[in-house]
Computed example of a mutant assay.
Amino acid sequence: MLNLNEFCSSRALVLITDELASPADFLLHQLVIGHLKGRPSNKCVVASPSGDLDRWKAVSLRSGIDVAQKLEDKSFAFLSLGEAITPSTDGAEHVVLSAVLGSIREAVEGAGTGQGVMVILDDTAILEWIGHSTAVITRFCRSLVSLCTRVNASLIIRHHVVNPEEPDPVLRTLFQLCSYHVEVRPLSSGKSGAVSGQQVAIHAGASLDSDPKREIPRGQALQYRLNDYNAVYFERGTGAAVL
């Protein structure tokens, strides 16, 4: 069983990359559910330009987490960024993302002392696609890393990859900032009824400085099958035995 929450220690950035054919939504949900189940005092902040809160509620409820209740007791915060991340017509895009950072800061600092805080930014690629410059996005990401480091929060950033063989400038920066890189890719052999169509590899990042966890190289990438409540992981070729 792969437990990604083990990689999400305080002050660490976990970068998740996925592709159009292999979305990593299930990993984000799994991370939030695992974090909220970890300790009663844990808090999670999700900032998403395209996320659907109703979907978060539905998926989490199947795993025993009532997001509606978590929203009320402020252990879960959902920031639907939407138009808030659209570059302004006067070119002051740094002001736009500074406001977004301020919203995240307010949610994180409102957690109080003694709480384990996880922040999820889903995702940075959309910032590029809607017109923000590379310089502004990388400055925003560095500021977010600095904020989470200061408050001892773990940080997860998802970045959609268009061409895995040619990382874009923002992704190259995230490679330098992250402690771990979780790579979700389509199956090299095509679709299979035994698995859910994707494989997961984990690589150490440039900012990993202590307590390394076991890496999972591409050649040994785990496959998985989603059920009603969770994901079951297994090594390639062992799906039938596991399931």
Rank of each mutant, 00 (worst) to 15 (best):
4 L>S: 04
6 E>R: 14
6 E>M: 10
6 E>P: 00
7 F>Y: 15
9 S>G: 15
10 S>Q: 13
15 L>R: 06
15 L>N: 09
15 L>T: 09
16 I>R: 02
17 T>H: 06
22 S>E: 09
26 F>A: 11
29 H>G: 02
31 L>Q: 01
31 L>K: 01
33 I>E: 12
34 G>K: 04
35 H>I: 05
37 K>M: 07
38 G>R: 14
42 N>L: 01
44 C>W: 01
45 V>L: 09
50 S>D: 13
50 S>L: 13
52 D>C: 12
52 D>E: 12
53 L>G: 04
54 D>E: 13
58 A>D: 10
61 L>S: 14
64 G>A: 09
66 D>V: 08
70 K>I: 01
70 K>A: 15
76 F>H: 04
76 F>E: 07
76 F>D: 06
83 E>C: 00
84 A>F: 10
85 I>E: 05
85 I>Y: 05
87 P>V: 10
92 A>I: 01
92 A>D: 11
94 H>R: 11
96 V>Q: 07
100 V>D: 12
101 L>Q: 14
103 S>G: 00
107 A>D: 03
109 E>K: 10
109 E>C: 09
109 E>M: 13
110 G>M: 08
115 Q>A: 15
117 V>I: 15
118 M>D: 00
118 M>Q: 02
119 V>W: 07
121 L>A: 05
126 I>T: 14
127 L>Y: 14
127 L>W: 10
128 E>F: 01
130 I>M: 06
134 T>Y: 12
135 A>H: 11
137 I>G: 04
138 T>E: 15
138 T>L: 01
145 V>H: 05
145 V>S: 07
151 V>D: 03
156 I>M: 08
158 R>Y: 00
162 V>P: 00
163 N>K: 08
166 E>M: 06
168 D>M: 02
170 V>I: 15
170 V>H: 06
173 T>E: 15
173 T>P: 00
175 F>K: 05
178 C>G: 05
188 S>V: 13
190 G>H: 07
191 K>V: 10
192 S>K: 06
194 A>I: 15
195 V>W: 02
199 Q>T: 03
201 A>I: 02
202 I>Y: 02
202 I>L: 12
204 A>P: 01
205 G>C: 03
206 A>S: 13
208 L>P: 05
212 P>N: 11
213 K>N: 10
213 K>L: 14
218 R>M: 09
221 A>H: 04
221 A>I: 07
223 Q>H: 11
224 Y>E: 01
228 D>P: 00
230 N>T: 15
230 N>A: 14
235 E>H: 09
237 G>D: 07
238 T>S: 14
239 G>R: 02
241 A>R: 09
242 V>R: 10
243 L>C: 02
